[in-house]
Design a protein around this nucleic acid. Structure first.
Lengths: 164, 164
DNA sequence: CCTACCGATCGGTAGG
DNA sequence: CCTACCGATCGGTAGG
């Protein structure tokens, strides 16, 4: 808390004129992350087009959220288990709901012919999210890939694979 | 430290008859994770066969390390940045070396025809490791997939993709 | 928003 | 390996 305060030009105890507790502050930050992802999914699901089109929108939206709000995302992804039970449950439900959007478009794509008909949608959803969530740990805008190339690279890997 | 001691049936200060400091203990645990991955990569690279065969061995080995030693792996993956500079540098170098094994077999596969000739090996290596490292966060042996089905599912996703 | 604190907990030590 | 501590730091409060 004293570190946070210092970044605001305050001393530690002065933070408590603005927040009630450290735990409350964590809840707020995690919640912001959850909202970002939810809004992104809502936008992507409102896209019209086949399963593949909506999958592309979900992936691009996720990349934007992760790269535009890395601190909130990190906190959402890795600190949710530090929340008190009731808040933790809500966040895990939000996460599952978001993952469900991926499962839904994958299933839709398998049925409308825009994706492989025999794909394992629960596994593919987890795998895609594993790839997307890890971005925060390695991607730099100063690296070899622009954000657009990154999205295309991930989609190429996921859609075509690396087989011969 | 008191929590760790309790799990051993000791009180906190008694730990210090066995270790020199909390920081030393962390170094040791992280190092164990690094060794597990390195040994796995060494075995996989000693496999004979084409790039694809060695990639399969790398993936299966990584899955085994993650699922058989989750605590060491978590510490290796997420607590390395809590190490003092010199140790941190060594661990990051070990990680890069391990990733290099993935890049090497991917490049080999692209050249020997067992993998897609135009694949982006640095990106594919990061993506595969993103998928593999995330396993610890969701896979349960009591779930729908056996370990073998998991490996096959990941390889199917990576090799064939989910495109139509 | 700061001053001046508080009780609890942390990593760790001396001595047996 | 425990007893009996220590100084530092933590989240937080009362009062101005």
């Amino acid at each position: 808390m004293r570190d946070l305060a210092r970044e605001l030009g305050l001393i530690g105890s002065s933070l408590y004129s603005h927040i009630d507790s450290k735990a409350d502050l964590l809840v707020e930050v995690v919640e912001r992350g959850a909202v970002r992802f939810q809004e992104s999914a809502d936008r992507a699901m409102a896209t019209d087009g086949d399963g593949l089109a909506r999958l592309r929108a979900l992936v691009a939206g996720h990349v934007d959220v992760v790269l535009d709000h890395p601190d909130e995302v990190r906190t959402f992804l890795y600190e949710a288990n530090a929340l008190e039970e009731s808040h933790r449950t809500r966040v895990l439900a939000a996460r599952n709901n978001y993952e469900e959007a991926f499962r839904t478009v994958l299933r839709a794509g398998a049925e409308d012919g825009s994706l492989r008909p025999d794909l394992d949608s629960p596994l593919a959803a987890i795998i895609l999210l594993s790839i997307l969530n890890a971005l925060e740990r390695w991607y730099s805008p100063n690296g070899r890939l622009s954000r657009d190339e990154l999205v295309r690279g991930i989609l190429a890997f996921g859609l075509e694979g690396i087989g011969p």
